[in-house]
């Protein structure tokens, strides 16, 4: 004897998934560097390289307080680093190349992530209120642009001497002292604004890098405090020489 069991709609066979809308994964992700997480890792690593550079650059700048000769010797030592094993300026050129690559990659990742973010929200909110108390996070992109523009000025001023009163054929200390004289107060002003932007950028960027690399678990509060402290030290360390020179140091 056979019984026919009629299936109700609740127990009806599930329609094959082929008929249902297929999971939409047509877009290729483009590997690690194509992924949003991969780009964030690029930001974190290149950012760390640049922070390392900033810290050394700041310490180097402070040598001006030990006298012009000390500062010039330091500048010379950077160029003769590794001699006589390697020719003049080899190590410095390699470091400069690493920094240039870092800046370019950092900007590439930032632009690409910003564009992805733009595509992810085609229709903007009529009203939008930020809920996280972190204004620094909202100025990362334009802050970065500001820093990039400043970097151009800074290189023209103190590295190539194009916009410096002493020009290229002068000692680094002379360029620095001449660059921040009181009558060039606006240079110091540019410098101060740029450094505040650098500080705010680092304030978020420093701990953010740890988060991106997955090292911020259970210690975000500490990392954020440390990021604030390191940013403050870097900003103050950089601001000390130009402000001291403007108010009369080194005459």
């Amino acid at each position: 004897m056979t019984a026919t069991i009629e299936r109700g709609s609740a127990t009806a066979p599930v329609t094959s998934p082929a008929k249902a809308s297929p999971p939409s994964t047509p877009k290729k992700t483009g590997g690690f560097l194509g992924s949003s997480n991969g780009k964030k890792v690029v930001m974190a690593v290149t950012g760390a390289i640049m922070v390392g550079f900033l810290a050394l650059h700041m310490l180097g700048n402070l040598k001006i307080f030990l006298g012009n000769d000390s500062f010039n010797e330091y500048a010379h030592a950077l160029r003769t680093l590794g001699e006589p094993l390697v020719p003049y300026r080899t190590v410095l050129t390699v470091l400069e190349a690493i920094l240039l690559i870092s800046v370019v990659l950092h900007m590439w990742a930032a632009i690409s992530l910003a564009r992805r973010a733009g595509r992810a929200r085609p229709v903007k909110y009529v009203a939008k209120k930020s809920q996280a108390q972190g204004y620094t996070t909202h100025i990362m992109r334009w802050g970065g642009v500001t820093i990039a523009l400043y970097l151009v000025w800074h290189l023209l001023d103190l590295t190539f001497g194009v916009v410096n009163p002493k020009g290229f054929d002068s000692s680094p200390a002379d360029r620095m002292i001449a660059g921040f004289q009181p009558e060039r107060w606006w240079v110091t002003l540019i410098y101060v604004i740029a450094l505040v932007m650098v500080g705010l950028h680092l304030r978020h960027g420093l701990w953010s890098g740890f988060q991106t690399l997955g090292w911020a678990k259970d210690r975000r509060r500490t990392l954020k405090l440390a990021a604030g402290a390191v940013s403050a030290v870097i900003v103050l360390g950089f601001l000390a020489p130009p402000i001291a020179i403007m108010i009369g140091f080194g005459k």
Binding site: S24, P26, N37, K40, A117, R119, T137, H138, W207, T212
Partner: peptide
Amino acid sequence: DAEGFGGCTNT
């Protein structure tokens, strides 16, 4: 990523 969500900037 394939769905078109943006990346995290830790805001």
